[in-house]
């Protein structure tokens, strides 16, 4: 029992440790990068420079303050995203842009290195050790083009180091192109989605795939039945066990009584004996009121409620609470 308990506790702790990353650093991706920018986004001073876009894949806010970005794996803490600025709190499914102009004095989110000649970029968590994401930029990207994920947040160059990430990668792989989901983007989109083509909603897709509703009806009814059939099977077996248990308990209760009765037939239930005795007594001494064997006693003073003769004003029993406990 102790072994089972300790295994259970350990498993719970493992699960909890994994779950604690929900909507956390693990959800941040390097979504898009532009190395050479001559006619695109401008910083607050009107200057054009390279930039890095992060994307929050979670459905909750994630704060990237204290995260590290580097182009050198040997120096993972090369640039730290400043703390204390509310802009680092990336809302769900939103973007965050950092200017890679090598001039941190130019503003809060200006990095201390440029992207000229950079081929690899790494994103580290606040501990400076946990690698969250990486991107490998091809050398031959034309000017004013960007490189990044074709579908926001999806795909990975390398398997990431947390079990949850590897699950996510495998889960998402079915949704991304075979090349890992990265590509040269014709239209740089800092702070916006990389998907420049109109995206169909689920409802629109469904209208094309299933214009009469037959497929959805069939799938949905199958799922409803599946759910309730599993519940049925589950509770049929639980019910059978419960019936067996009830029968066993009943049998266990009745066994000593039956044994006692069979050992000594005169050892019957006391209530039955009492009932037989009263019946015999009544029978032998007569059954009418006149015979005196009944529950109305003579010469005994009793209180008899008689409301008809008194007005409610005079009837004290109506003005007082009958039973203080009620």
């Amino acid at each position: 029992m102790k072994k089972i308990l300790s295994v259970f506790t350990l498993a719970s702790l493992l699960l909890l440790s994994n779950a604690s990353f929900a909507q956390s650093p693990v959800d941040i991706r390097i979504n898009e990068v532009q190395v050479s920018n001559t006619n695109g986004i401008e910083d607050e001073h009107g200057d054009k420079c390279g930039w890095i876009e992060l994307f929050n894949t979670a459905f909750g806010m994630v704060d990237v303050a204290g995260f590290y970005i580097t182009d050198d794996k040997a120096n993972p803490t090369k640039y730290m995203i400043p703390k204390g600025n509310p802009a680092t709190q990336i809302p769900l499914r939103r973007y965050f842009v950092l200017y890679a102009d090598g001039n941190p004095a130019a503003g809060v989110f200006h990095m201390n290195f440029t992207l000229d000649g950079v081929r690899d970029l790494y994103l580290y968590s606040t501990d400076g050790k946990t690698l969250l994401d990486e991107i490998h930029i091809p050398a031959d990207i034309a000017e004013n083009r960007s490189y990044g994920r074709v579908v926001d947040g999806r795909g990975a160059h390398e398997p990431l180091n947390w079990s949850k990430q590897s699950y996510r990668k495998s889960h998402e792989d079915s949704l991304i192109p075979e090349d890992g989901g990265f590509g040269v983007l014709d239209h740089p989109t800092p702070g916006q989605t990389n998907a420049t083509k109109a995206v169909e909603t689920k409802s629109e897709k469904m209208k094309q795939q299933d214009p009469y509703g037959g497929i959805l009806a069939m799938i949905a009814m199958s799922v409803v039945f599946l759910c309730l059939i599993i519940l049925y099977l589950c509770f049929r077996s639980i019910g059978k066990r419960a019936i067996k248990k009830q029968q066993a308990e009943k049998a266990a209760k009745q066994a000593p009584k039956a044994a006692a009765v069979s050992a000594n037939p005169s050892n019957v239930d006391e209530e039955i004996v009492a009932a037989i005795a009263i019946a015999c007594h009544l029978y032998q001494n007569g059954q009418s009121v006149d015979s005196g064997i009944h529950d109305v006693e003579s010469n005994v003073l009793t209180f008899n409620q008689d409301l008809l003769r008194n007005s409610p004003w005079g009837a004290r029993n109506l003005t007082l609470k009958q039973d203080p406990r009620n």
Binding site: K207, D210, I229, Y232, F235
Partner: peptide, 28 residues
């Protein structure tokens, strides 16, 4: 527990109305 299945069968109404609404021009 087999009464669960009766509860499932009655959900056909949902999908009949869904198909009907599609036929009448509503979006999915």
């Amino acid at each position: 527990p087999k009464l669960l299945l009766v509860g499932a069968a009655a959900q056909f109404g949902i999908f009949a109305a869904y198909a009907g609404a599609l036929a009448l021009g509503f979006t999915p």
